[in-house]
C-alpha cells in the first residue's frame, strides 16, 4: 500500500471515530447519504432486486451506527464472462449516457435511465444484474488464483496424491461437465467465467456507499485481489480501484474508492433534476450501481450489469 494512502486511511479512521454519523439529509445538495437513508435505499434494493441481501458480517467489525442485521449489502455469484462481447448496444438500449467531466479530465461516464420515462419505466430500464462482462484483454492463462503460482513453492504437487480410480466410481448419472475438464482449453470460444461477490458498505467518512469485489475463478477458487485488478483497466487499477481491508469481512478486497462518489452522484442527481425527474433517496443505490457499472475507470467491467 502506498504511504499516502495509508496516512489517509489513518486520518479517515480517526475522523470516523470522532464525528457523529450524518443524520440530516444532504442527498440532493451533496449527493451523499445519511445512515438512515442508506438503510432505506438498501431495503429498497433488496426488495426490488432480491439477489441482494443484507448481512451482518464479522461480529467484531460491526458498526454500532448501523442495525446489526443490516451492516452491508451483498450479492453473490455475479458472473463475469471473459469474452469480447460488445456491450455498447446494451448501453444504448438502457438509455443515454452522460459524460460527467471532472477536473482531471478523465471523464466519469455515467449512464442513467432514460430520463423521459416516468419513474416506473426508469426502473424497468435499469440494466440487469446478470453479468459483469469482461473484455478480451484479460489474459486467460494467468488464472492461477491462489492455486499454484510462485508463492506456493511449498505446496506439494497435488497430482501425486491423485486418488486411484476406485475412489470416484464411474456413475452414468453424473454429468461430465465441460468446465471440469482437466485441461485448460486454449481456444477462446469457450466461456471462462469468473464470478464475483459484490458488496456495498456505508463509508462513514465520505457518507456514500462503497463497492467491494471478491473474485472467484472458473473453478470457484478465490482470486487474489491482485487478480481482480486484472479485470480493471490498468490505468486505473490501484488508483480508483484499490485493495483494502473490507469493513465487515476478513481479508483484503478490491474496492472502488469512494472519494468522488458524492460529487458524481450529485451530478447525476442534477442531470435528473434538470430533466424534470425528481430523484428519490430510496432509488439512490440503483443510480449508484448504474454509475459503478459504467465507470470507465474499471473499463473491463464497464458492462457490469449490477442490477
Amino acid at each position: 500500500m502506498v504511504l499516502t494512502q495509508k496516512l489517509h486511511e489513518a486520518f479517515k479512521g480517526t475522523v470516523e471515530r470522532i464525528t457523529n454519523p450524518r443524520t440530516v439529509s444532504a442527498f440532493k445538495e451533496k449527493g451523499v447519504l445519511s445512515i438512515s437513508e442508506f438503510v432505506l435505499a438498501g431495503d429498497n434494493l433488496v426488495s426490488k432486486c432480491p439477489t441482494w441481501s443484507w448481512e451482518s458480517g464479522e461480529p467484531s467489525k460491526r458498526k454500532s451506527y448501523l442495525p446489526a442485521g443490516k451492516q452491508f449489502l451483498i450479492t453473490r455469484n455475479v458472473p463475469c464472462l471473459r469474452r469480447a462481447a460488445s456491450i455498447e448496444d446494451e448501453y444504448e438500449a438502457a438509455g443515454g449516457e452522460v459524460l460527467l467531466d471532472n477536473e482531471d479530465n478523465d471523464g466519469w461516464l455515467a449512464t442513467h435511465g432514460n430520463p423521459k420515462d416516468n419513474k416506473h419505466e426508469e426502473e424497468e430500464n435499469l440494466p440487469s444484474m446478470e453479468t459483469l462482462e469482461i473484455g478480451k484483454k484479460n489474459t486467460i492463462q494467468s488464472i492461477s488464483s491462489h492455486f499454484g503460482g510462485e508463492e506456493e513453492e511449498d505446496i506439494p504437487d497435488m497430482a501425486e496424491y491423485e486418488e486411484p480410480d476406485n475412489l470416484i466410481e464411474t456413475d452414468p448419472a453424473t454429468l461430465q461437465s465441460t468446465y471440469l475438464v482437466a485441461q485448460e482449453p486454449d481456444d477462446d470460444n469457450i466461456l471462462r467465467t469468473r464470478t464475483y461477490d459484490v458488496s456495498i458498505t456505508y463509508d462513514k467518512y465520505y457518507q456514500t456507499p462503497r463497492v467491494w469485489l471478491t473474485g472467484y475463478d472458473e473453478s470457484r477458487m478465490l482470486l487474489q485481489p491482485e487478480l481482480v485488478l486484472e479485470d480493471v483497466s490498468q490505468d486505473h487499477a490501484r488508483k480508483t480501484v484499490t485493495i483494502e481491508d473490507h469493513p465487515h469481512l476478513p481479508g483484503k478486497h478490491a474496492s472502488v474508492h469512494p472519494c468522488r462518489h458524492g460529487a458524481v452522484m450529485k451530478k447525476i442527481i442534477d442531470v435528473l433534476m434538470s430533466r424534470g425527474v425528481e430523484p428519490e433517496v430510496d432509488k439512490y443505490l440503483f443510480l449508484f450501481l448504474k454509475f459503478v457499472a459504467s465507470l470507465q475507470h474499471i473499463s473491463q467491467m464497464e458492462a457490469a450489469n449490477l442490477l
Binding site: 497435488m158 471440469l180 482437466a182 485441461q183 477458487m221
Partner: peptide, 9 residues
C-alpha cells in the same frame, strides 16, 4: 478441474 485431487488455497 476434472481430476480426482483435493484443492489447496
Amino acid at each position: 478441474r476434472g481430476k480426482k485431487v483435493s484443492k489447496c488455497i
